[in-house]
């Protein structure tokens, strides 16, 4: 046994790292959620483009723009040297996930706006520059398909980057997993599917999203299992990090809110709903979305507790 005593008491560093508060988990959640909406809206568009009727895919880019902007606001609030934020865009650092993220975020906005311009809100359809884009994009199916594919690809990059951002920080063993990006991507997709299930005007789309979400929730359980087993089969510091979630300080939130209330219970409710044994209610999707948010909080906070 070794007992260490430090004379250092740096603010936000000692006794435990607490540099990232609510802003980062909220940003990671909203980033993943928007990524999920971009991917699903692209997939739904490509699957349903020839079918008439109301579709959710043209509502999602508006919501994505608002939520992503709120997420970036949270990120901006977290920065300690705000006046120098522009420095992000004077360079590209290939080894820094945060640099990748800054540039990916620049790609997300135009892709979302192009998606809006395929089918703009009817009041703006005749307004000068918008009508021009609207007509140009709708003149060719290939252009619209390209925008749908771009939403899927850029959305996947955004969703994956939110996990890579943390996993690249090797000094925090809980985050230092090669599978964290997949966990955040699947969780983002699952939250987005739950959200579409909540708001879609078309019954067919609601049913489709409930079924999709069930597969995603089951997949998320597997990814979490792989995430934990990879930590538990690694070095002493990684095992110690996994213990923070499994039986340590964050075990109640992890098991109670993320696994049971955020995945297992909504999975049971939605499985019964898609087999028409119970009615579709907002309860299960809301639990999935809250579970996704709490997952980011638990991972960011517990990760800061882990270390060498």
């Amino acid at each position: 046994m070794e007992e260490l005593t430090h004379t250092r008491h740096n603010h936000l560093i000692d006794p435990n790292l607490t540099i990232w508060g609510w802003e980062i988990p909220v940003y990671l959640f909203l980033g993943g959620f928007v990524a999920g909406m971009m991917i699903l809206s692209g997939v739904i568009y490509l699957r349903r483009r020839n079918q008439p009727g109301a579709t959710v895919v043209f509502i999602l880019p508006y919501i994505s723009l608002i939520l992503l902007s709120l997420g970036m606001l949270a990120l901006f609030i977290d920065l300690e040297h705000k006046l120098y934020t522009w420095r992000l865009y004077l360079t590209f650092k290939p080894l820094s996930p945060m640099s990748w993220g800054a540039w990916i975020l620049l790609l997300v906005y135009p892709v979302l706006i192009l998606k809006i311009l395929i089918n703009p809100f009817f009041l703006f359809r005749d307004v000068a520059p918008i009508s021009k884009f609207y007509k140009f994009l709708n003149a060719s199916a290939d252009r619209k398909n390209f925008i749908a594919y771009a939403n899927i690809v850029i959305g996947a990059m955004l969703g994956a980057y939110t996990g890579i951002l943390l996993s690249a920080l090797g000094a925090r063993p809980l985050w230092n997993s090669g599978i964290l990006w997949l966990l955040f991507l699947v969780s983002g997709l699952s939250g987005a599917a739950a959200f579409i299930h909540l708001i879609a005007p078309d019954k067919g789309e609601r049913e489709m999203m409930a079924k999709t979400d069930n597969y995603l929730l089951a997949g998320e359980l597997f990814v979490i299992a792989f995430f934990l087993t990879s930590l538990l089969s690694s070095s002493a510091v990684h095992i110690q990090a996994a213990t923070i979630l499994l039986s340590g300080a964050y075990a109640p939130s992890f098991w109670g809110f993320v696994i049971i209330a955020g995945i297992i219970i909504p999975l049971i409710i939605q499985s019964l709903a898609v087999s028409h044994k119970v009615k579709h209610t907002p309860i299960a999707p809301l639990m999935v979305i809250a579970g996704g948010l709490i997952l980011r909080f638990v991972i960011v906070y517990a990760g800061q507790l882990s270390g060498y």
Partner: peptide, 8 residues
């Protein structure tokens, strides 16, 4: 920019 990634 004070992003704190280096601290973590």
């Amino acid at each position: 920019i004070g992003c704190k990634a280096c601290v973590a």
